[in-house]
């Protein structure tokens, strides 16, 4: 009873201030989450930039050294190699994953029963975590007891695929694709199902065959999904640390030491946190750039409902 009275009183007071207008939730509702997010994501972002200007072993207090680490960064051959390997993996992954997942997505968008059954099986790799996937493939790629010995003729007798740089990069691309193509297929499946059927009917009346329909209707209609999915691949590729650690451990030598792996090694193996922060800042720059591009192109920031206009 008390609460009803008091709330009525409050309402009376507010009614005078902002008469019949709708009372909307204020920014105060967002503040706890905002503080939390700033503490654990934004402050560390600033922290990594600051640490990149210091020398720090993790124990003593960081020594401010200005741009020293950055000059070292730009003349570091190992970093150049890491950047190149990261780029090769990124491009390789997109070239392998994008076409396959577009075709699979469009194929699985059909409602035929055999497609539904197979799609369910194609989904299975998503049930495994990256760690599980990598551990599994490490065994499957074993030069003696894995799958390569069965394909020895095909591989020209070289069954130790992870033993050379080209093989190791190829393996990383294959394993990443195996793991993530199902995810991208889901994106394309949803988008392909949303394409209005009337477009295909009109094209068929005009005599367009399956291939023409694919290139002139399906692909253009999937434009937004292609942007979304590719950006996921780029950001995912820039941060594909766990798969490298588990599958190749950066090797052979430092041949597959991609940027996040090089950062991890520098920070948590050689305890050079200042220099590792430079690599981290560089990663941050690349990933933020890629994602901002996504927001700009896809229009996520327009704040509109998907139901508007229906």
């Amino acid at each position: 009873m008390v609460s009803i009275t008091s709330s009525r009183l409050v309402r009376g007071r507010e009614a005078r201030r902002a008469a019949p207008a709708l009372e909307r939730p204020g920014v105060a509702w967002a503040i706890p989450g905002l503080v939390f997010f700033i503490l654990f994501a934004i402050v560390p972002m600033a922290g990594v930039v600051y640490l990149s200007l210091t020398r720090w072993d993790g124990l003593s207090t960081p020594q401010f050294t200005g741009l020293h680490n950055w000059w070292r960064f730009f003349s570091d051959g190992q970093i150049l190699q890491s950047t190149l390997v990261t780029a090769v993996l990124l491009v390789g992954n997109i070239l392998v994953q994008a076409p396959i997942s577009i075709l699979l997505g469009v194929w699985s968008a059909g409602y035929q029963r055999n497609r539904a059954v197979l799609s369910t099986i194609f989904f299975f790799p998503l049930l495994l975590s990256t760690a599980a996937t990598a551990v599994m493939w490490r065994q499957l790629l074993d030069p003696n007891f894995g799958i390569p010995p069965k394909l020895a003729d095909l591989l020209g007798g070289n069954t130790d695929l992870l033993g050379g740089q080209k093989g190791a990069i190829a393996c990383l691309i294959v394993v990443t694709s195996w793991q993530f193509i199902p995810f991208h297929t889901l994106i394309y499946q949803g988008a392909a199902r949303a394409i209005p059927l009337t477009l295909y009917q009109a094209a068929a009346i005009d005599g367009a065959g399956r291939v023409r329909q694919f290139f002139h209707i399906t692909l253009p209609q999937l434009r937004n999904s292609i942007i979304t999915s590719t950006t996921f691949m780029v950001v995912g590729g820039l941060t594909a640390f766990d798969i490298v650690l588990l599958l190749t451990n950066g090797g052979p030598g430092t041949d597959t030491s991609i940027l996040p792996f090089a950062m991890y090694q520098t920070a948590f193996r050689t305890y050079d946190y200042g220099y590792a922060s430079v690599i981290a800042s560089f990663l941050l720059l690349l990933a933020t750039g890629a994602s901002l591009l996504l927001v700009k192109i896809s229009g996520y920031d327009k704040m509109t409902s998907t139901m508007e206009g229906l």
Binding site: A41, V43, P44, M45, G47, V48, L51, V235, L238, T239, F241, P260, M263, Y264, A267, Y273, A276, S277, A280, S281, L283, L284, A287
Partner: peptide, 8 residues
């Protein structure tokens, strides 16, 4: 990306 801020 969480990797980029893991040190701080």
């Amino acid at each position: 990306p969480s990797q980029a801020v893991i040190i701080p």
